[in-house]
Design a protein around this nucleic acid. Structure first.
Lengths: 327, 327
DNA sequence: CTGAAAGCGCTTACAG
DNA sequence: CTGAAAGCGCTTACAG
């Protein structure tokens, strides 16, 4: 395989000058630049990023650790991250923890071993110490979507309480007074904050609100909570996240519960198919791409700048899954 | 940052022995193993994968180049690839070409620069020469889902013709005799093969089949083809891929065309939401995870073994989007 | 089973 | 603007 030495030899300049031309750093004469470039082209030279990474201790890759790439919410995050990083000439490597702290620990070790330049993570709650250790080792880290409680690491989050409030308020505005919230696990900050926001909104409006907590962040862990919520016989149901919404639809379709006639529904997150259900789904959208872009920006900003946390507002998208129960 | 030399010094053994212990290769005494391991643990040593990669010329990362991570079909592929590679202690790095040959070329250069151990790609048609060059440079490459025509590189594909035949035959079996196929661009092999399979099935059954080709692999490029297909007034419509299906649903919902009363529909690919549409969608499923696992296996198999190509059959999933028009 | 030496392909730091 | 030397942190190849 052709290396810099080959290019230098052919160009008639030193390895150092060839390096300066190929990396684009440092002063070079026009003549040197041209000689090196044509030599490189003739030889089909492609710089060895591994050697570059070893010597310069900048690998040019940023790691993203998410829960599950098959979840559209995280897929959007991955796409947005790739785009934001491409603008900075950085590459992205993605891996999935499956909400498993042990697996996440392995992934963090791998990120460390590969000497990634930075890390974006939607963390489980268990690896705070390792994250701290990585951060102290000099790796820029930003938490996205959720946080490890009591960890002083920067983060970009949805205004979860406000988003849940919008969902509850929308139902209240349409005359609903008995509302179920099927939430994700409250051990995860998104779940806890959304429940708190919904509870506060319900209290202010004098509504009955009952919370049904999914056993896990996975599909199967959500079905029982949905079933329990239906048994409580609410007129309106809020799905606390995208996975719960999917479980809701499965259960509702299986039981032929008609939306919004028999039950009004407000979802979380916004996906194309929500327009195609029998009743298009009213939902709280979060701007994943803006949030991810902000996280990437935060990664490379001065750690002192802009504070430790940035919150984005959710946006209620009104479609047809909420019935009007006002007299 | 702590390195092997630190570990070796603390353990009382040489760097070479420490290396053997940490990498798990080569003979070491139990005493040496233990001394090195405890030294490593005490120092919090994490091997430098970059240095390892430079010296051993195996980086342990496999690249996956797809069209768009936000497309669920490719997201499934990414997940399956990550899982299959994790079993071999390999990491995955994913990047998206957006169906753009220029962008894909940059990504191929990046894959080359990072000295990935292998490459999985759903190629555009334009970079055959570069792929050949990479392969000749010794990189194992497997094409997934589609191929660059006339490129002698290994591949794992759907039996596209057979899958399209199943869709058409299913409609014919239900009495449909005027069938539209909205296909993806025929410049991509999946599009061309599916059209050929559908045409052959239609000819055998003596059906009217009209093909409407999407202008691109993106959502917007598909809407016009869908509109044209509707104008032709078929009783049954086959969507040639997942993106086209999405465009179909958008157009059908906008125009209030009822499925299956006014039009029968057969989709491609299978996603959870297809169970939740007003009429659950009958579709041809492909086993993305099996295909991807096979591709990973092929990557590390002897190039002489098992031939250049492996095909997987599609599976028709019958739901409720096809009306029975038999007398 | 163990180790001293060389080197992977670059870039850093220093001179000129 | 240009270059000779050293070194990033490992593993390979060779001895013993």
């Amino acid at each position: 395989m052709v290396n810099l030495t080959d290019v230098a030899r052919r160009s008639g300049f030193s390895v150092m000058t060839a390096s300066r031309v190929m990396s684009g750093r440092g002063p070079v004469s026009a003549a040197a630049r041209e000689a090196v470039l044509t030599a490189a082209a003739e030889l089909g030279y492609v710089p060895n990023g591994v050697a570059r990474g070893l010597r310069s201790s900048r690998t040019g890759v940023v790691a993203l650790i998410i829960s599950d790439i098959e979840n559209p919410f995280y897929a959007s995050m991955a796409k947005a991250a790739e785009q934001a990083l491409a603008q900075r000439q950085l590459r992205l490597t993605i891996s999935s923890s499956g909400e498993d702290t042990e697996r996440e620990l392995e992934l963090l070790r791998a990120v460390h071993a590969m000497r990634a330049d930075a890390l974006l993570i939607t963390p489980t709650t268990g690896n705070g110490p390792v994250l701290t250790q990585l951060a102290e080792g000099g790796m820029p880290i930003v938490q996205l979507d959720r946080v490890v409680p009591d960890l002083e690491l920067r983060r970009v989050l949805l205004d979860n309480a406000g988003a849940a409030r919008q969902a509850v308020t929308h139902l209240a505005d349409h005359g609903h007074r008995r509302i179920a919230l099927v939430s994700g696990p409250q051990s995860i900050t998104t779940g806890a904050e959304r429940v708190a926001g919904a509870r506060r909104a319900a209290a202010e409006r004098g509504l009955e609100l009952e919370v049904f907590e999914a056993a896990s962040y996975l599909h199967e862990g959500s079905r029982d909570a949905v079933a329990a919520a239906l048994e409580w016989a609410p007129t309106g149901l809020v799905s606390g996240n995208g996975i719960v919404l999917e479980a809701c639809l499965d259960v509702l379709v299986e039981r032929s519960v008609r939306v919004p006639d028999a039950l009004s529904l407000v979802g979380f997150d916004d996906l194309p198919w929500m327009r195609w259900t029998a009743a298009p789904i009213t939902t709280v959208r979060q701007s994943v791409s803006s949030m991810t872009a902000a996280a990437v920006e935060m990664l490379f900003a001065d750690p002192g700048d802009g504070g430790i946390e940035r919150r984005f507002a959710g946006e209620l998208v009104v479609r047809a899954s909420v019935a009007d129960h006002r007299e």
